[in-house]
Amino acid sequence: MKKHKVTQNIGFALLFLCMAVTLFFLGAIIYFITIRGIKVISWEFLTQVPRNGMTEGGVAPAILGTFYLTMGAILVSLPLGLACAIYLCEYSPKSALVNLIRMSINNLAGVPSVVFGLFGFAVFVKYMKFGVSILSGSLTLGILALPVIISASQEALTAVPQSLREASLALGASKWQTIKKIVLPTALPGILTGVILSIGRVAGETAPILFTAATFYTRHYPDSVFSEVMALPYHIYALMTEGTHPDKQAAIAYGCGLILLVLVLLISTIAIVIRQKQRVIHG
């Protein structure tokens, strides 16, 4: 066999191996979490409050808490992030300052999430006196999700062909009419994809809610935005590090992990479906 063919085959084999290893870990995560988590999943587990020092009952308050925090975060970050992206893409002059702003936003995405947690604690919990609450947690998570939403929205807006803007303006539409009626609807699937991906990220974050929203245990469901809540990721953390029945607690933690995993996978699937639809529309 010729030498370059051998080299090529070795190359392919290496690439295949890397792919296989990656796939193995991905499969292993899903397999182990499912095997260990599925045992505790039951209707009761999904709908009841925890009992007997976290060792029995369900995790309904944590599921609900994660839902509230995630929705709250999106309510904070979507309008803010979208408005910011529209300004940067459509209105701001192309200057060095704007480039600097863009770079800063990208850097914001690299800030460790526990630092966001500290910031949220200092500003929302203490300074603004919102306390440890859904409000403080949602604001903190919202800021965390902001860079993802801004860059996804920016990408979606930039992908709208300039010719559509020109067509609209040439018909006598104002700039704002053009953005509202042509640019935003065309970019919407891309923006939604960004939103959904950030939901996936926000739902699983632990560190930012550690000091701002989460509580280890409550029998009560939250009654206002100022209530502290249980949340799935923090619940897992607490089950694995505190308490007196490590075995029983670990089983419940895996159950929570499975619920979280299913939630995030579900959300990603929706994102993929929306993106497919967008491809159909725009060829």
């Binding site: 010719s163 559509l164 067509a167 040439a170």
Partner: peptide, 8 residues
């Protein structure tokens, strides 16, 4: 315009 640009 040069290229047809109907809205989607």
């Amino acid at each position: 315009f040069q290229k047809p640009n109907p809205f989607p």
